[in-house]
Design a protein around this nucleic acid. Structure first.
Lengths: 215, 215, 215, 215
DNA sequence: AATGAATGAGCCTTCATTCAT
DNA sequence: GATGAATGAAGGCTCATTCAT
């Protein structure tokens, strides 16, 4: 957490540091990223990170917090419509965010790093930023499948939905090599629809209880 | 690639180095892992890595290769039964492998690291180890949905299936915190069934062409 | 080439590093010299070499440059008098420089090392520092022998003069053992005169064309 | 000094090691030369140096001894003729040896290294190999200049002669850059004659006592 | 006798952090 | 407040040497 300063130039420096650090952490990971590269890309002096964030790790935590606080997940809560429509909207937004060449691409990558190998930053933002988003998806799935399935089934189902979105976050590099057409931003709308179709079919089957696992 | 030695103790040393390195790379990532920690855990000399593998990066590549070459994906090709049964078997095997407390847990983690942020090891094993496995799943999905859907739809569908498995690989730490019951090995059989149910429902919908994306 | 810093203490640190490095490089050669010994002798931090000179090799190049830029050869150009007097002055200055116990003795030795086995530093200073000095001696010899001899003869003659001086640079250790009296600084004035006598006799013979090689 | 073995293959291995080591020491110097490169070039196993010569330093000493024992200096003693003719022959042989592309070129270079920076090998061979050669040249110079000049003058004169030969040994690399024509083997005969002319003129002047240093 | 696999000391360099200004 | 020069700890790697065979 940065020292809270009111000074406008301090805030500007912090903002530039977070942006530069996000890029470098995304490209190289926490350890391989060097303070020198971050400060040079931010155009600030060598000591700025220690001055504003105490150390590299705290800057990293701030970068993770920043990245997670801007994910679009939260917005689906504000949307109306049928549950089906809201699930489609949710998936579209997440996929669009991942593929949008306009948005800083480092946000998703640093989060992926941290999820695979938590450094403490994950726990620092778990309750503020992650649990509420997870709850939203949980509630939406419950609405879609009704009261029949137990909580374990709900957990599986919501992760099946989330997994399909996260997949395109975690495996960008692999997909570039295996299925370049799936990496192209112009196909992301169709991809989102297909994920939604697939997911709604899976959820409806769960709602009907016609699955083998329900026997 | 290690120097090929016939000596039995050399092979033993290499094996112990790969195992120790797998653990350390999984815990810390390629850059944060130190050769000192690896060699100490393996109980060998500091110079052993350079002697047997030339350098740290080549040891890492060997760890990735080792991890991937032991994934069970390939075995589903040998299984008989209907396509549905083979998909269920495939998912069960992958999930069982991820949750099996007997198997070294670092295999999955190092692969996850490498997929998110390739270091060159990914490309070194792409054609040998990854493409054949990807092709198997592609063919199975095609069998299940018939000739109707185009290749893009097949690609989306197979990644939707794969994504649900990978999710439990990539997000172990997150799941421990959000849904401890989904991290428990004793629930992995039910989890696998639910993933299979969800996936088969999604694939059948694609086969029927009753999806919004088919309009 | 050191980073150009204005700071006075930085310049002081660089000066001390060059002086310490000169000693150690002279004693041990480029490869056998360790940065640890250099930095300890300079009383600075281990990282100072990399900070000020990027790496050991660049420090070495700077040492060579420093050593060559302080040779007295260049001054003979400013001296007046007959060509004979100028040659005597030139030889006296070079010999005096080599034997002067006040001047750091490493300058000559590091240059000798680099001339025998160039590491890249030689080429870095060839055009700046070596060719101009070589040209001065060439011109002086040409003046002394007139237009008769061809360029090859001039080349041989100027190297015969230079060789007698360089000999006492290269073979200090050998001379200490074979002819201690020739290593004594108090005899250096007589030595310089004898070299000059010997050389002027050789040059006059060349000018007269009474040599066997001119037949 | 190698363990004296009668075994023919042992002698063969030592010979190959000395030859390979001579090349590598000449190219890189004592420290930068690696045991691995030497043994590989010699086609022997890693431990051969320690086995046959105890350690790298003793192999190096043996290389120096080998190099010095084959210099042609000694042969002039066997030659007849006037002192002038014998000096010409001596200089021709030394120069021819340095420029002869047929002879292994590392001999001169390793000696030059050792003369500039004695490692102990110099002292090991000083009395056997160096003093006798130095004495021969001393005696020849004394014969040429008669009894007039004192020993200091003789010392200066003989080093003036030797210096002109050594110069082309020590400064090979520099000469390649400054005067390529003086590096060409086909010009070495003319070079030797010019050195002899220059030297004989210098010695005759010393004999006549017409030098400034004699005043 | 001769080998080559394995060792451990030590090297150069990098880098997050500090401190005088 | 903010800087950038300087630090020291630690990292990966090399290499002469050893030792079991």
């Amino acid at each position: 957490m940065p020292n809270v300063k009111n000074n406008a130039s301090t805030q500007e420096t912090c903002r530039r540091l977070i942006d530069a650090a996000g890029q470098v952490f995304a490209e190289r990971g926490l350890h391989a990223a060097t303070v020198k590269e971050i400060t040079e890309r931010a155009g600030v002096n060598t000591a700025a990170i220690n001055y504003h964030f105490n150390d590299k790790q705290e800057l990293y935590t701030e970068v993770i917090r920043h990245a997670l606080s801007q994910t679009p997940m939260i917005r689906e809560a504000e949307l109306g419509g049928t549950p089906e429509e809201r699930l489609r909207t949710f998936i579209s937004e997440v996929i669009a965010d991942l593929f949008d060449p306009e948005r800083p691409s480092w946000r998703a990558t640093v989060v992926a790093h941290e999820f695979i190998q938590p450094t403490g930053a994950l726990d620092a933002v778990l309750d503020d930023l992650i649990r509420p988003r997870a709850q939203l998806l949980h509630d939406l799935v419950r609405e879609l499948v009704g009261d029949g399935p137990d909580e374990f089934a709900i957990a599986c189902a919501r992760f099946s939905v989330a997994a399909q979105c996260f997949f395109y976050l975690y495996n960008r590099e692999l997909l570039k090599r295996l299925s370049p057409e799936l990496s192209a931003p112009e196909n992301s709308a169709e991809l989102a629809e297909r994920i939604a179709d697939f997911s709604l079919a899976g959820l409806k089957a769960l709602a009907r209880g016609d699955a083998k696992s329900a026997e």
